[in-house]
C-alpha cells in the first residue's frame, strides 16, 4: 500500500472503530425502517401496483374518488388532490401505465435524509482534526516522517470517504427496506413527475441519483467549512454549531440580501444547483458556470485556511 492509502486507512480505522460512528448508522437505519413502516400503515392511498389491462379504469376510479373528496373537504386537500388528478390524467392522455409505489420511489423520497447524512459528515469532519488535539494524540501523530500537509489531506479525504460510505449506506438500505415493504420496481423504472415543463415521463433511477447528487454539493461545502473551523480553532463543538447554524439559515441569509448585487457571491446562493434545472434562480443573471466558480473559490479558500493554520502553528501545551 502506498503511504497515502496507509494514512487514509488509519484515519478511517480511527473513525469506524468508535461506537459513536456506529450509532449514526443505527439512527439512519432506524429512520429508514421507521419511515417505511409509517408509509405502509398511514398512507392508505399508496398503490404498490396497477394491473396491466385494467389500469386506466383504476385511475379513472381514483380520480372520481378524489374529486368527490375535494368537493367535501375543499381547501388544502382539494389543492393536493387536483395535482394528483392532473398527474393521473397525464397517464391516461399519454397511455402511460403508472408505476406502482416501490423501493426506488421510497429511495427517491429519502433524498431528504441527506440533510442527516450532511449532519453526520459535519460531525466527523469537525472532529477529525480537533479530536487529536483534545486527546493529546496530535503530538504522536505529528512527529512522524510525514508532512503535515499529507496528514491534513488524508484526514480530509477520510471525511469524504465517510460521506460516500454513508450516502451509499442510505441509498442501499432505502432500496432494501423499500423492496421489503413495497416491492421492487425493476432496474430501470420510469415514472411521471412534475418538472418545469409540466409532467414528464422520466427514469426514476436517474432522478434519484440527480437528487442525491444535488444534495452532495451542500454536504461537501458545509463539511469543508466545519473542517476548516475545527482546524483553526481546534474546537469541534464550535465547528459543528457554526456549520449547522449556517446550513439552517443559509437560505434566509441569501433572502435577506437578495436585493443587493453582492448576494450572488454568498455561498448559499450557489449551493443549490437545482435552481438551474428548474430555472428558478436566486438572483437574475446567475448561471451554472458562475455558481460552480463561486463554489470552487469557497472550497479552495476553506482548504487553504485549514492548511495554513495546520501547517504553520506550533503544537504547544494546553
Amino acid at each position: 500500500m502506498s503511504k497515502f492509502f496507509k494514512l487514509l486507512y488509519n484515519e478511517l480505522f480511527k473513525t469506524y472503530i468508535r461506537k459513536s460512528t456506529w450509532v449514526m448508522y443505527i439512527v439512519l437505519l432506524a429512520i429508514i425502517i421507521g419511515g417505511a413502516v409509517i408509509t405502509s400503515i398511514f398512507e392508505d392511498e399508496i398503490v404498490t401496483s396497477y394491473s396491466d389491462d385494467n389500469w386506466q379504469e383504476e385511475l379513472t376510479q381514483e380520480n372520481e374518488k378524489l374529486i368527490q373528496e375535494s368537493e367535501e373537504e375543499g381547501g388544502y386537500i382539494a389543492e393536493m388532490n387536483s395535482s394528483t388528478i392532473s398527474k393521473n390524467n397525464f397517464h391516461l392522455d399519454n397511455d402511460i401505465k403508472p408505476l406502482g409505489y416501490g423501493a426506488w420511489q421510497y429511495t427517491y423520497e429519502n433524498a431528504s435524509l441527506l440533510s442527516l447524512v450532511s449532519l453526520f459528515t459535519i460531525i466527523i469532519g469537525a472532529g477529525i482534526v480537533s479530536s487529536e488535539f483534545k486527546w493529546g494524540t496530535i503530538k504522536l501523530l505529528l512527529i512522524r516522517p510525514i508532512s503535515r500537509t499529507m496528514i491534513l489531506l488524508t484526514k480530509f479525504v477520510a471525511v469524504l470517504v465517510f460521506a460516500l460510505i454513508t450516502l451509499i449506506f442510505t441509498l442501499l438500505s432505502s432500496l432494501l427496506v423499500g423492496a421489503i415493504f413495497f416491492g421492487f420496481e425493476g432496474f430501470d423504472p420510469y415514472f411521471v413527475t412534475s418538472t418545469i415543463n409540466g409532467y414528464e415521463h422520466l427514469s426514476l433511477v436517474g432522478e434519484t441519483f440527480s437528487s442525491y447528487g444535488y444534495n452532495i454539493v451542500n454536504l461537501i461545502m458545509m463539511t469543508t467549512f466545519a473542517f476548516m473551523v475545527s482546524t483553526i480553532f481546534r474546537n469541534n463543538s464550535l465547528a459543528i454549531g457554526l456549520a449547522i447554524f449556517l446550513m439552517l439559515s443559509g437560505n434566509m441569509i441569501v433572502a435577506a440580501f437578495q436585493k443587493y448585487d453582492f448576494a450572488k457571491y454568498i455561498l448559499f446562493a450557489n449551493t443549490d444547483l437545482k435552481q438551474y434545472e428548474t430555472g428558478d434562480v436566486w438572483i437574475e443573471g446567475m448561471t451554472l458556470g458562475f455558481s460552480v466558480t463561486v463554489l470552487i473559490v469557497y472550497f479552495v479558500l476553506f482548504m487553504a485556511l485549514s492548511w495554513v493554520f495546520f501547517n504553520k502553528r506550533d503544537v504547544a501545551g494546553h
Binding site: K6, F13, W135, L140, R144, P145
Partner: peptide, 25 residues
C-alpha cells in the same frame, strides 16, 4: 519520542495503536 504524557487512542487496543503508528513508517 514521548512528549509529556504518553497519550494514545484510549478507544483502541494496544495492538491497534501500535499498528496505527507502524503504518506511518
Amino acid at each position: 519520542a514521548i512528549v509529556e504524557n504518553p497519550e494514545l487512542y484510549p478507544f483502541m487496543t494496544g495492538w491497534q495503536n501500535l499498528m496505527h503508528y507502524a503504518r506511518m513508517y
